[in-house]
Simulated scan of single mutants.
Amino acid sequence: MALNDDYLDYPLRRHGYDHDRYAWSMLSERTPITWPEGKTLAVWINISLQFYPLNQRGEPFKVPNGMTMPYPDLRHFSLRDYGNRVGIYRVLKALAAHSITPTFAINAQLAEQTPYLVQRLKEHGGEFIAHGWNMDHLHYGGQPIEEEAELVKRSVDTLRRVTGQPIRGWLSPAKNQSFNTPDLLAENGIAYCADWVNDDMPYACETNTGSLTMMPLATEIEDQFVMSQNLHSEDSWVTQVKDAFDFLLEESREQGGRLFALNLHPWLVGQPHRIACLEEVLAHISGHPDVWQASAGEILDAFHQAAEQA
């Protein structure tokens, strides 16, 4: 049976995208920018500090790396807790050894419940960004907007109060969003979001309450994706991170500024048998003259400044 003529008539079909969140733009065709001090590659090292409730709800799905065994799943709960009790201190030592300024994405509930941890992170130095309430409070399509609005506000307000920082950045638990999430982030004074990974540079995202910048935090090379989900070895993770870094560095020299963003989880890379792998990665990243290493907020500010001057 033949289809009606209007079957392929899509009113939003046009050059680019069928939405107005961000403009169509090919990375290779954008005006090249240079990072501070004439550097070509900006490096953002993100440390995700997370709290996985023992009695997780799993709505609307079980969060990656959450509890998997019948309650009480103390085996996995205590392993995740290891990162906040032990692993993070090894990670901080490795960062300091290579003079790396980190960005700490932390669940607001964890920050509120562990003031000693927040104080240690503040002493180390770095920027805090909101990582939702905890890893079992997801943002998702179909979630009542009032519920999500309260969740965003509680997470951001709590982290601002506990850390004393302005909190300009956001990373959703599991990088999961609803269609309302960007609007709610901008409404709560968030300047950038790290959920979307469809670029190698920051880009503007329009919301109902103003502009929000998307800061891509790579999924493909983060430790939990490579080792926990793809089940690759620690050595394979090191190789993949180095390869990604080397490629972006060379591309940045040829085509203009690029962003290399690496997300780390202390409960994984802070283990005794993995910390040497992290140290190898950090040594490789910090050993290049064309690299500018900074917090996510500093990179955002430099990007806007360079874009204005371009």
Results as ranks from 00 to 15, higher is better:
Ile190Glu: 03
Ala186Lys: 15
Val118Gly: 05
Glu123Ser: 09
Leu117Ala: 09
Leu171Asn: 12
Met135Ile: 01
Gln177Tyr: 05
Asp136Trp: 09
Asn134Leu: 01
Tyr140Ser: 04
Gly132Thr: 08
Ile145Gly: 01
Glu148Asp: 10
Gly125Asp: 02
Val118Lys: 04
Tyr116Ile: 05
Gln109Phe: 10
Tyr192Ala: 07
His139Asp: 14
Ile190His: 03
Ile167Met: 06
Glu146Gln: 12
Arg120His: 08
Gly126Gln: 06
Pro182Trp: 02
Ser178Lys: 03
Arg154Ser: 14
Gln109Val: 09
Thr114Pro: 00
Thr181Asp: 11
Glu123Pro: 01
Trp170Ser: 09
Ser172Gln: 08
Asp136Lys: 10
Gly132Lys: 06
Met135Pro: 00
Gly132Phe: 06
His139Lys: 00
Val152His: 13
Phe179Val: 14
Asp183Gly: 05
Glu146Pro: 02
Leu171Lys: 08
Thr158Leu: 13
Arg120Asn: 03
Ile167Arg: 05
Phe128Asp: 12
Glu127Ala: 11
Ile145His: 03
Pro144Trp: 10
Ala194Glu: 08
Gly164Val: 05
Thr181Cys: 09
Gly189Ile: 11
Gln113Tyr: 06
Ser155Phe: 05
Ile145Val: 15
Pro166Ala: 10
Glu146His: 09
Gln119His: 04
Gln109Glu: 15
Gly125Ser: 00
Ser178Gly: 09
Pro182Ala: 01
Gly125Trp: 02
Thr163Arg: 10
